[in-house]
Simulated assay, not measured.
Amino acid sequence: MAKFDSYQFEDFLNDDSFITWLKYGTDVNGYWQEWLNAQPLNLNVYNEARAYLLTVLSTDVIIDDPQHQQQVWDRVEKGIIGHERKRATIKQLRIWSSAAAATICVFLGGLWYYNSKVEITTGYGEHRNVTLPDNSLVKLNANSKVSYYRAWHWHKLREVWLQGEALFDVKHLNKQPGDVKPNEQFVTHAGDVNVQVLGTLFNVKSRRNNVVVALIKGKIKVSGTQPGSHSYIMNSGQAIDYQKNDVNLRLVNSLNNKPLAWTEHKMMASGMSVGAIIENFEDTYGNRIVVDSPALLNKQIDGTISVRTRESTLYMLANLLNATVQERDGVYYLKSK
């Protein structure tokens, strides 16, 4: 019965027990009479609904007080108007909420697009050519990854991140050498080193906590990311070997492995240790090489070594060391003859 206390005009008309009570005089369990005896606060609403329903159900004309009849019809009209307003309000709220949801989705989508990166990777033994959105070219060595902002043109700098080794051929944008705008700069992040360029050709190798930058042509600025690190201006033909704060600036021709040899699937060794050759093989193909004599790791090699396939590299290395090769569980063992 307590629920009757909150009934509005429409609620009475939608209640089957109310209709039965008025039409047949049947009061299930005496609820309606008991409720009326309690003189509820919405008794006037009950009377209006009762009069309206009796008008509908009666086959005889029911003469009611004109004033009361007007109140009933005013109530009906008010209910209809209120219902229409409610529907209009709900519709408007749905439109607003849909617009707000769409705005949030657009904002979040834009934020994701602005901060997300495109990542391009190579597997073991794989090379890949990458064209950046500004038409700069990147040749990616095996077991390497280059990434850049998806919203490339929304950022002030042209930036790429490198893990592994790559050759960069950067498109020259600035027209005035002495007036370089932020969006004309190109920065490569590799390990603990940032390489800032304008338009140039350079190779970056970032492996085993060691970064080697070889400048083929142009001019670059190499800076360490660690506190207290220095910056170095490099010219064509120079290379820098950067391991934390241990920096070695030298000529490209003095490197024990020519920096662009890998683009032709080769190592061009000049006083290159066997240990360094093995590291290069492991970085390229992912397999370990174990030698039976640690002293062999310090042996220096001169000459060209093919790295086109795993087998060709192992074959040439075995010949250079006069050793046999055995493979167990993906590990290659070099044993001196």
Rank of each mutant, 00 (worst) to 15 (best):
G30K: 00
Q185L: 14
V204P: 01
N143A: 13
K78H: 15
L167F: 14
E77R: 12
H127R: 13
L317Y: 02
M268P: 00
D292F: 02
Y232F: 03
T225S: 11
V331S: 12
N319K: 13
V252T: 09
K205P: 02
K219D: 06
K145V: 03
L251P: 03
N248F: 08
R207N: 00
R75T: 15
A151Y: 02
L53M: 11
A100V: 04
N322D: 12
G303P: 05
H230M: 10
V76T: 07
D11Q: 03
V118A: 09
R87K: 15
D64E: 15
Y315P: 05
M268N: 13
N322F: 04
L93M: 12
E165H: 00
M316C: 09
I81H: 14
I19V: 13
V56Y: 13
C105R: 06
F107R: 08
I301L: 03
S98D: 07
L132T: 05
H127V: 08
K3L: 08
R150C: 06
N256F: 04
A276E: 11
D302V: 06
D16R: 11
L36I: 09
N257C: 03
H189W: 07
S98L: 04
D283T: 00
S97K: 09
T55M: 15
M234R: 00
V204H: 00
H230G: 02
S273Y: 07
F107E: 07
A318S: 08
L53F: 08
L53V: 11
G79A: 15
D329F: 11
P294L: 10
D329K: 15
K139G: 04
R308L: 11
S270H: 11
L54G: 08
K117V: 09
V211D: 01
D74T: 08
D134E: 03
W154F: 10
T188G: 04
D134R: 00
S144G: 03
T284D: 07
Q243G: 07
L297K: 10
I301K: 00
L111W: 13
Y148L: 03
H172F: 07
E184S: 06
G330C: 13
L157V: 01
A99G: 11
S236Q: 09
I233P: 10
A261T: 01
E165M: 01
K156N: 14
